[in-house]
Design a protein around this nucleic acid. Structure first.
Length: 301
DNA sequence: AACGCCTCCAACCGCGTCGGG
DNA sequence: GCCCGACGCGGTTGGAGGCGT
């Protein structure tokens, strides 16, 4: 026996909502509150299924919906949270007041994802990464760490690259301070859900370096980074950085800053006349290391 | 003006999860 | 523990509108 349909298909209207239907739904919810979506259409006098009513309310009619173009800060937040959470649109929407999961999903699919892919950068996905590979000893011998390894994930970093990265990138300004993604613990429940991919992390290093802090304010982020830097590398200047003196330094994930002329190494917005290849090369030259044209993040590790 | 292509986004669909009985 | 209804989520679709030819 199959699943019973959420509504009687016969006589149920589909497609765009009319203003009369919107008014009926709004009036009913203002009077009785949302919920009990299955019986709501009948009680509200609507020829719709409950699912359709719930979607219309949550994505369009809700009074706290914020309309209009997403701000630069909101875009940065989306990119950063996507790097941590993946396609958890509702979780991302939970960090953006007034925005819906549907809106963010649409925005990602039509703007951000395309923009990053156009640059040859696969949006980093912490949720897809096997963080145990970070502890691969071969990484310690690298003379340079590719920026792509750093995107969205704590990594082994040369302090000089760290300094450069921190000077070029910033975290979104509206992140919640002290929301920590405790990704160092097996199956740890984070503020955004359970991270189950991280297992069997060896005890060879300081696990605290795998924290991914999320800041509410750029200045706070910079201050914390400075504190961490000073405590971690106080005896470790870029001048005496030796080949094998790599350290795990927790500095928060870094992200490419899009569409911010003042801070981004090159104009990366969609109005740019440069080609994606030019953008990528310019970007790489500024960073002084390669961003490969690899679409599978896992290949980088 | 007509046509075709592309973009955007509201809405739909199927499935997973949760909770009450 | 099982069943089933209700709900929520993420992927997908399709229509409207914009734009170039």
């Amino acid at each position: 026996m199959g699943r019973t349909p959420c509504c009687d298909k016969n006589g149920v209207k589909k497609g765009p909502w009319t203003t009369e239907e919107d008014q009926k739904l709004t009036d009913y919810i203002q009077k009785h509150g949302p919920g009990n979506w299955r019986t709501l259409p009948k009680n509200a006098g609507l020829q719709r299924c409950g699912k359709s009513c719930r979607l219309r309310w949550t994505n369009y009619l809700r009074p706290d919906i914020k309309r209009g173009k997403l701000s630069f800060e909101e875009e940065e937040t989306i990119i950063h949270l996507h790097s941590i959470l993946g396609n958890k649109w509702s979780a991302i929407a939970g960090c953006l007041p007034g925005r819906t999961d549907n809106e963010i999903k649409n925005y990602w699919n039509t703007h951000v994802g395309r923009k990053l892919l156009r640059m040859g950068i696969d949006p980093p996905r912490l949720d897809l990464l096997d963080l145990t590979s970070i502890f691969n000893p071969s990484l310690y011998n690298s003379s340079q760490v590719n920026l792509s390894r750093l995107l969205g994930v704590q990594s082994l970093v040369n302090p000089e690259i760290l300094r450069l990265a921190n000077s070029l990138f910033s975290l979104p300004s509206n992140f919640q301070e002290n929301q920590l993604c405790n990704s160092h613990v097996q199956n740890q429940l984070t503020p955004f859900g359970q991270i189950s991919q991280i297992q069997n992390i060896p005890t060879c290093t300081d696990l605290s370096t795998l924290f991914v802090p999320i800041y509410s304010d750029t200045q706070v982020m910079q201050q914390h980074n400075m504190e961490r830097l000073s405590s971690n590398i106080s005896n470790f200047s870029s001048q005496n950085c030796q080949q094998n003196e790599w350290k795990n330094i927790n500095f928060g994930s870094v992200l490419p800053t899009l569409s911010t002329p003042s801070s981004s190494p090159t104009s990366l917005n969609s109005n740019s006349n440069t080609t994606s290849e030019e953008e990528r090369e310019s970007y790489c030259s500024m960073l002084n290391f390669d961003i490969p044209n690899i679409l599978d993040v896992n290949e980088l590790l």
